[in-house]
């Protein structure tokens, strides 16, 4: 049994074609025609990756994203017909890990899925705990403690934090983070990094508006500090 993908798409033809194409790439695909059906399918049998079309009747893609995120850190790829900033940022803020715009090529989608799954197994971090003030990373267990209490991060958020923690004090550019966390080339979308940093801050910072740990270095990028 290979990696299972839950593809949520209301257009039957697209769902069928994408299912065929993804099965060709070697994934096991389960289709869902609506948000409600997707929630039910996911509860019955959690998938390894969820593909969500934003424009859904009933529960829309954003809402579905949030619903799944409440109980799961499964990688979510959002599919949008509009590459307007608003939709993309809203989708990422709802908890999506990455996005694609229609029409995408199945190879492209497969590459994204592979990158997401690799993200689940973080880079070789060693065994020691990494401590940044009241923030503590336990790479082995995939855990983050803030003031001694466990913080729940998605895989991508955890991976992002680990990359920042790897080289203590180093400033990472958006480009570097896109490459290391998302495996994007030079033309990756910087908004992915920005929104994930924002999401990360709401979880690990006591005052997300004035971050102490995940700080912006203007014109250069981001850095993790104690």
């Amino acid at each position: 049994m290979g990696t299972r993908i839950l593809a949520v798409e209301d257009d039957e033809r697209i769902r069928e074609a994408v299912t065929l194409a993804l099965e060709d790439e070697g994934w096991t695909v389960e289709g869902a025609a609506s948000g409600e059906a997707a929630v039910e399918a996911f509860e019955r049998h959690p998938a390894d990756v969820v593909l969500i079309d934003i424009m859904l009747p009933g529960i829309d893609g954003f809402e579905l994203c949030r619903t799944i995120r409440r109980n799961s850190d499964v990688p979510i790829v959002m599919v949008t017909a509009r590459n307007d900033t608003h939709d993309i940022v809203a989708g990422l803020e709802a908890g999506a890990d990455d996005y694609l715009t229609k029409p995408f090529q199945s190879k492209e989608l497969s590459a994204r899925i592979r990158a997401l799954l690799r993200r689940i197994r973080p880079a070789q971090l060693g065994h020691e705990r990494l401590v940044f003030g009241d923030l503590e990373l336990i790479p082995e267990e995939g855990k983050v403690l803030q003031g001694g209490e466990e913080v729940h991060l998605t895989k991508t958020e955890f991976r992002l934090l680990c990359e920042l923690a790897l080289n203590r004090g180093k400033v990472f550019s958006r480009e570097e983070l896109l490459d290391r966390v998302w495996e994007y080339d030079y033309f990756g979308d910087g908004r992915l990094v920005d929104v994930h940093i924002r999401r990360l801050r709401t979880k690990v910072e006591s005052d997300p508006a004035n971050p102490r740990h995940v700080v912006t270095v203007r014109g250069l990028g981001y850095r993790l500090q104690a």
Partner: peptide
């Protein structure tokens, strides 16, 4: 186009 593109890939 999405349908076309995915089908053509197959």
């Amino acid at each position: 186009l999405m349908t076309l593109s995915a089908s053509v890939d197959v």
